[in-house]
Amino acid sequence: MALSTEDIRNIAKLAKLQINADELEQYKQDLSRILEFVEQMNQADVDNIEPMAHPQDMMQSLRVDEVIESDQREKFQHIAPATQDGLYLVPKVIE
């Protein structure tokens, strides 16, 4: 699968990555090669195969509904880029 420059732009937008104009070509080549490589998968007949999401055939374990966490805001916000009055700050969100 050869990707177009437009594809790269769209993927970058989904992934929230900024790809500069001079990098586009390299990404296009690299990603197209990787996709070509993984298309080896088409050799296999997988029509009636159940997809495998987990290595273990297990069911989810469940937690008892109880509060076990205490407030650690100060510790957690110590490593945050920007906070004020206990809130994380981000550039203005327009809804």
Binding site: R63, E66, V67, I68, E69, D71, R73, D85, G86, L87
Partner: peptide, 19 residues
């Protein structure tokens, strides 16, 4: 009492980010 995937409280109206 607690969140769907963690043991933090769900009570309404707490100080921001303390839960």
């Amino acid at each position: 009492q607690s969140k769907i995937f963690s043991g933090a409280a769900t009570a309404y109206g707490a100080q921001p980010n303390t839960q």
